[in-house]
Amino acid sequence: MTAHKALALDLYRQLLRNGYRMAGYNFRQYAIRRTRDGFHANRNLTDKGEIESAIKYAEKELGVLKRQSVISQMYAGEPLVVEHADKNLAKKNEQLHSAV
């Protein structure tokens, strides 16, 4: 049981770390949110088979996230306006109001 717990925690940390490396804002936020919610939903699993299949799934997802975060950085675009929301909202208002 404790071995599973240690493994799950390690996977959780690695998934989050690689999630933060996703270049696109939306994919990054999703990876973090999905990882947190997924582990939270499974935190009280007691059945050995269920725990093992959840861990196996997380391992597979970690492989995907490791590859895709690297690829996302190779093709990274500009950040989204929402990443500096306050600044961009103020800038836009200024543009509009200075026009009239």
């Binding site: 950040p79 306006v81 543009q95």
Partner: peptide, 16 residues
């Protein structure tokens, strides 16, 4: 107003 928005320099950030 619309003209000002049209002519505003395209920001670096992408839209939502």
């Amino acid at each position: 107003a619309v003209e000002a928005v049209q002519n505003a320099p395209a920001g670096d950030e992408r839209p939502i």
